[in-house]
Simulated assay, not measured.
Amino acid sequence: MRNTARWAAALGLTATAVCGPLTGAALAAPSGATASLYAPSALVLTVGHGDSAAVATPERAVTLTCAPSASGTHPAAPLACAELRGTGGDFNALTARDDVLCTKEYRPVVVTAAGVWQGKRVSYERTFANECVKNAAATSVFAF
């Protein structure tokens, strides 16, 4: 239960920090101003060890904003945004690299994504067998 509260607190605070300015910008537009030409894309990405987000302790969290331009605390924001755009924001469609060989060690790593992708709410969770499998399958999006 304690880990669930940590995940909820971490995701809630980070989502507020990332998505809060997006909602205020729409309200602050002067009358007669043209509407934004892009839908917001702002995500909070987390990585932790465990079988699911409910029991895992979050170890790292970054923000990724892809519209209007790539930014955030993600170390490779432009590349991660390009990969997500290539899949239309479908995390399950991120392809695994063929040139990686991983051990069969079981040390589960759980990744989550929460926020907004092109104006639509996103909530994603996936568990990988180990760090090597995560890095091979999730390309640069969860490489932080």
Rank of each mutant, 00 (worst) to 15 (best):
A9K: 02
L11V: 09
A17M: 12
C19M: 12
G20S: 02
P21M: 04
A25N: 00
P30N: 13
G32I: 02
A33H: 09
T34Y: 09
A35H: 07
A39L: 15
A39H: 14
A39S: 15
A39D: 15
P40Q: 06
S41I: 03
A42P: 11
L43H: 06
L45Q: 02
T46W: 04
T46Q: 05
H49I: 06
G50K: 11
E59M: 14
E59L: 15
T63A: 05
T63M: 05
C66F: 03
C66T: 03
P68Q: 07
S69N: 12
A70V: 01
S71F: 05
G72F: 06
G72S: 06
T73Y: 08
P75S: 09
A76W: 06
A77R: 03
A80P: 02
E83P: 04
R85C: 00
G88T: 06
G89K: 04
A93K: 00
T95E: 14
T95D: 11
A96F: 08
A96S: 15
D98G: 12
D99Q: 12
V100W: 08
C102A: 12
T103Q: 07
E105D: 15
R107V: 10
V110L: 06
V111K: 02
T112K: 06
A113T: 10
A114D: 07
G115W: 01
